[in-house]
Design a protein around this nucleic acid. Structure first.
Lengths: 346, 346
DNA sequence: CTGTTAGCGCTTTCAG
DNA sequence: CTGAAAGCGCTAACAG
């Protein structure tokens, strides 16, 4: 069979736009490389030539083939993004930040959702790496050995987000959750609270919640205090879980004067529970969250909480990676900090 | 310069895993195609051969290059996803559904966020199409002419989500927002409400909210009723906007007995406003939303609303596309329906 | 069950 | 400013 025939057979197989660079080049009466240069806007091309090329592109409806381009140039503009969940608005915010940081650069995120499962994460990282992304952005530090190895040996930039309480593979962007927990304790102690309760969700899937709890307990200890009671739900965080957690806590013996929740979702549930049970917020029982979600701030009594800068975390990670596309010699950590939001519930 | 030298120069340029199929093949003592077959799990390969290959893969740490694979086979496992926003949990839900539907199939979503701007959408669609995705999933029917042309002429499957009130390019998956608006009116009229108020957000960016409003007004008219008053915010929907909208509406002259909100975010704001103003929900003023978000159902008085099956919309779109990867002759529309959620606020 | 050959569509390199 | 040649890393097609 002749090559020309084969070529046709192949063509019929693939569904997409059959227009190629070669077609455009033929129509514009130039070589393929010239069309390529016009499209990528590199090297100087005579104004007239450029015009003819663009015209040809226009009326063929040519769409670039990045797959071929990436293979030829060995430089991709895909960025792998691995997050645990999209049910939690926190990660949606991070993804928004990533997208925002990528902006009009032409880079596009390819995303994977792990469902908090390191094994799923491993599979995802493998299949994202197969696309030879320019960089990889992943939430947290908890990876399987295989994942870590892949990430290390691909020499692309790797950003681990949210958390800065461990050593990163390359770059960490986030806040110290331990410090946030400590700050929470100190703030509330300074405000006169002494009887602390805690309502949380599953620590196995949310290491950061645990770190905050540790910081909280540690700083309380330094003030000569301890939690009077706590309730842990084993599911993920949710408003409903927060309601139930607080209800259970209040049914317990020791009545706290302030309850710290693992995050705002849970705390908003606590607020709802107080409304339902007619407990005067702050006066009878103070509540404190974490994250600074909009929903908490829109409540009739704005939630007292800690603002984590989630959008900024995603955005900064991208900015940093784009500005230094090669992995450096040293590990980097960027602290995006946090702020206490006074609110009206504590 | 000899080819072998050239090859080396190239290699140094690209950052990634320098291990290729050829390397693995050499180490395993087989041909490249055999390694390829093992990795893709196609055609039969002798158990012994397979084992040697996998061993070689293991200790070289080889990672497949999908870019080259896609180019060679002309079949990608990337799916383009274009959504207006991630601030709105509704679209995060759709994206979750898409990811869920993709499951372990190996397909990965490449995402773009338009910010409700058709021009941005056009750019995004162009750059996603350049990756020669297996399919394209996009929210809504409002595209520029160029976008529509690209989508049409790329013969890949195109799913337009959320809405089924227009003719799709290929496949539409969603619900009739007009019908949802009508159902809302009929439900509330049947419950005895007569004086309807409406609080909404920007219609320019949210055509579906407008369709619901139209359905509402139309069905009210059929019952001999009309809105007594309405307030439209020009920003996007939010809890805060809902609070303010309701506050403004109540300051107006005509006091409604029920207020329909453009969606649950807005309606939850309405609930908060009633709490703040000490207005007895349902008895003094009934409130009604749209979407059936968790937050509304976790309220002390669950929000009366309409449940849209957002996760299912994303999931169904993917399932449908994967099951029929070629575009058919006829346009298809899948109605995911909606359900009235009685709740306690109306 | 395994291998050889010929591209996929583009960009790099080197030469004008 | 423009082009020819070579090849990116893989897989389809055809043989054996």
């Amino acid at each position: 069979m002749l090559a020309e025939q084969k070529r046709h057979r192949r063509r019929a197989t693939q569904g997409n736009s059959p227009v190629t660079l070669a077609d455009v080049a033929r129509i514009a009466g130039v070589s393929e490389i010239t069309v390529s240069r016009v499209l990528r806007d590199v090297a100087s091309v005579a104004a007239g030539t450029r015009k003819r090329v663009l015209a040809a592109v226009g009326d063929t409806g040519y769409v670039r083939n990045q797959v071929a381009g990436t293979l030829a140039s060995a430089t991709s503009n895909l960025v792998g993004v691995v997050i645990p969940s999209l049910s939690n608005i926190v990660f949606a915010d991070v993804l928004r930040g990533i997208d925002g940081g990528l902006g009009p650069s032409g880079y596009r995120p390819v995303v994977g959702i792990t469902g908090y499962d390191p094994t799923v994460e491993e599979t995802l990282v493998g299949s994202l790496l197969a696309w030879k992304p320019a960089a990889m952005i992943i939430v947290g530090f908890e990876h399987t050995d295989v994942t870590r190895r892949w990430l290390k040996q691909s020499s692309i930039r790797v950003a681990e987000l949210m958390d800065i309480d461990s050593a990163p593979i390359d770059l960490a962007v986030g806040l110290s959750h331990r410090a946030a927990g400590q700050a929470t304790a100190r703030h509330l102690v300074a405000r006169g609270y002494r009887r602390f309760g805690y309502v949380g969700h599953d620590w196995n899937t949310d290491r950061r919640a645990r770190l905050r709890w540790e910081g909280l307990v540690q700083a309380l200890a330094e003030a000569g205090l301890a939690l009077v009671d706590q309730r842990l739900n084993d599911g993920p965080s949710s408003t409903q879980a927060g309601r139930e957690g607080l209800a259970a806590l209040l049914r317990g013996g020791e009545r706290p004067d302030v309850v710290v929740f693992s995050n705002d979702d849970m705390a908003v549930g606590g607020v709802f529970q107080c409304l339902a049970e007619n407990i005067a917020l702050k006066h009878e029982l103070a509540l404190f969250g974490f994250n600074g979600l909009d929903i908490g701030q829109a409540l009739p009594m704005p939630l007292s909480t800690v603002r984590s800068n989630r959008f900024r975390i995603g955005e900064l990670a991208v900015e940093h990676i784009l500005s230094r596309p090669k992995r450096g010699e040293t590990l980097e950590t960027i602290d995006t900090g946090f702020e206490i939001v006074e609110g009206a519930t504590a």
